[in-house]
């Protein structure tokens, strides 16, 4: 499947990664190359096959409902690029 520049631009928006306009064409080519190669999967007959989400043959273990964590604002904020009044800050969001 050949991806065009518009599609690549849309994916880049979804993934929140800026792509320079002059890189778009080349990137579309690279991604198309990968996807074309992947399309060989179409040859495999998967009728009636259940998708495999995890190889772990386990039951999901449940936690007890107890407060065992948190209470360390300093650790949470320790690596923050920007903070104010105990909060992370980001460019103002208009709703």
């Amino acid at each position: 499947m050949a991806l065009d520049k518009t599609t690549v631009a849309n994916i880049a928006v979804l993934a929140r990664i800026d792509v320079e306009e002059d890189r778009m064409e080349a990137l579309a080519g690279e991604l198309s190359g990968i996807l074309n190669w992947i399309e060989q999967l179409g040859e495999v007959n998967t009728d009636g096959v259940a998708p495999m989400t995890s190889v772990a043959d386990l039951a999901l273990a449940w936690r007890e409902d107890k407060v065992t964590d948190g209470g360390y604002q300093d650790r949470v904020l320790a690596n923050a690029p920007e903070q104010q009044d105990g909060c992370f800050t980001v460019p103002k969001v208009m709703e």
């Binding site: 999967l41 495999v44 096959v49 495999m52």
Partner: peptide
Amino acid sequence: AYYLKAQKVRAL
């Protein structure tokens, strides 16, 4: 076409 298909092939 991609993810679900891949998960099925993974099962195989």
